[in-house]
């Protein structure tokens, strides 16, 4: 689904721009298809819950988090996201996720909460130990932790008990471990814009947002925002 979205967007976008633009190596390329994005009107804002999940793709500067949230707010025309969940950042092979991996992103998220850009922040796929470590260290506590759909009927009791004690919502997700790899992004790029030196483009982060009509369980809109950086040839 995600690759479809990327390709469709790039196809449509590239058909609308001057071909020179791609070759000219500008610093910032904004590829959006404006009719596909629906801004939330201010008088509907209270009825909506705007949530996002942020996936870090490569090694990343923590300011990516702020970029992503700012961009989501501006795309959707809102001042604030109701919830942001950070997917566990990728670690090197064989290395378990530890608090240190999360800390830079969480610090950024905390700032965003304090600056009222986000209401609540949460984590994904943390076990009880990881969640506890984060909880104890964090200034702004995680409000939720997502677990994989596969385990929703066989929850580890220690995680359930901890979450209950500290009022952390346990939610479910069905995302693969790696939602978007560098390679598959580049492949999508290559297929959509044949002229582009696809290998030079590295995805940095991916944000998936959804806008839900709160009391009715209806999805108003959903989409992805992705940032990629061009490294030197």
């Amino acid at each position: 689904q995600l690759r479809d979205c990327i390709q469709k967007t790039l196809n449509e976008w590239s058909s609308q721009i001057s071909p020179d633009l791609v070759r000219e190596f500008p610093d910032v390329l904004e590829c959006t298809v404006s009719h596909a994005v629906e801004k939330i009107s201010p008088d509907e804002r209270d009825e909506m819950k705007v949530s996002a999940k942020l996936f870090m793709v490569g090694s990343n500067s923590s300011s990516s988090t702020k970029n992503a949230v700012d961009m989501a707010c501006s795309v959707l025309g809102v001042a604030q996201l109701d919830s942001v969940i950070i997917a566990s950042p990728p670690t090197e092979d064989g290395v378990n996720l530890s608090l240190e991996h999360l800390q830079p992103y969480w610090e950024e998220l905390q700032n965003l909460v304090q600056n009222k850009k986000i209401v609540a922040i949460g984590t994904s796929d943390l076990d009880k130990t990881q969640l506890e470590q984060l909880y104890q260290w964090a200034k702004v506590k995680p409000n939720s932790n997502q677990v994989n759909l596969a385990s929703c009927c066989v929850m580890p009791p220690d995680l359930t008990a901890f979450a209950k004690q500290f009022d952390i919502q346990l939610l479910t997700h069905n995302d693969p471990k790696e939602l978007l790899s560098e390679a598959s992004f580049q492949e999508a790029l290559r297929e959509s814009i044949p002229d582009i030196p696809a290998h030079e483009w590295v995805p940095l982060w991916l944000l998936r947002y959804s806008v839900i009509v709160k009391s009715r369980g209806i999805i108003k809109s959903k989409g992805y925002i992705l940032q990629a950086k061009r490294r030197g040839p």
Binding site: K49, S51, S83, S144, V147, L149, C152, C153, M155, T160, Q169, L170, L171, T172, H173, N174, D175, S210, I212, G217, I219, K222
Partner: peptide, 20 residues
């Protein structure tokens, strides 16, 4: 339905019931 559910915030208890 599953695609819809992936986009909703569903707590684990509820998701387990719905799964069954």
């Amino acid at each position: 339905l599953n695609c819809y559910l992936e986009n909703m915030e569903v707590d684990v208890d509820t998701r387990c019931s719905i799964l069954n």
